[in-house]
């Protein structure tokens, strides 16, 4: 087919495009994914038994912020990465803030603690399970976000896959906060971060294949 013919065919009878439709669909996918993660957590892990008491401690909120900030920033950045030509440089700066803050807090706690307590602050009682469970809770959002990206046009698929992983990992971590009894900053700064990075690595690895269009 000649290029001119193609152009005429594409333009003929072209319908109006609702540009808010993609935003709605993306929001729906992430909302549904978050809900599924919450149900998964409630049915298999359950809320932490001392949740009411924990709500009164600053550390609970610091931990929650450590997960919520990358979740929100990551989701916005993924949506932008789905649109050719959009810039996301700012996202990396904002993503670094909670990580650096939690690392600083963690180091401060380790330095202030007596030497024999330091291992407990870092490993808690659930260090092995924590990243795996966060990765597991990230799965619904991860899958739904990647499939929502099919409708968009990510031109940097590896980065987009990684960002989808960070965002879904952070949603998983947010939900996990409601279950996890660990309250030490050194623990959160390492194992929560690792939990978010697992889906990020998976996303980066499969981005080019999965997000092809």
């Amino acid at each position: 087919m000649k290029t001119d013919e193609l152009i005429v065919m594409l333009a003929t009878g072209v319908s109006a495009v609702d540009r808010n439709e993609t935003r709605r669909r993306f929001a729906l996918a992430t909302g549904l994914g978050g809900l599924l993660a919450l149900i998964l957590m409630l049915t298999t892990l359950g809320l932490r038994t001392d949740l009411a008491a924990a709500l009164a401690t600053p550390m609970f909120w610091a931990k929650l912020a450590f997960a919520v900030v990358p979740a929100v920033v990551g989701l916005i950045a993924v949506f932008r990465l789905g649109r050719p030509g959009a810039r996301v440089g700012w996202a990396f700066i904002v993503l670094a803030v909670p990580v650096l803050a939690m690392w600083a807090l963690g180091v401060a706690q380790l330095v202030a603690a007596p030497a024999e307590n330091r291992a407990a602050l870092l490993f808690g009682r659930t260090w092995l399970l924590c990243p795996l469970l966060i990765g597991l809770l990230a799965t619904p959002v991860f899958i739904l976000v990647l499939s929502a990206l099919k409708d968009l046009a990510p031109t940097r698929p590896t980065l987009t896959g990684a960002m989808a992983g960070i965002a879904s990992g952070a949603v998983g971590a947010t939900v996990y906060c409601l279950h996890c009894p660990e309250m030490a900053a050194p623990f959160v700064s390492v194992w929560y971060l690792l939990g978010m990075l697992i889906p990020a690595v998976v996303g980066a690895a499969c981005g080019r294949r999965v997000l092809r269009w």
Partner: peptide
């Protein structure tokens, strides 16, 4: 051009 057309809603 086909890609531009199919993905025009991402503009």
């Amino acid at each position: 051009l086909l890609a531009v057309h199919n993905k025009r809603h991402t503009y």
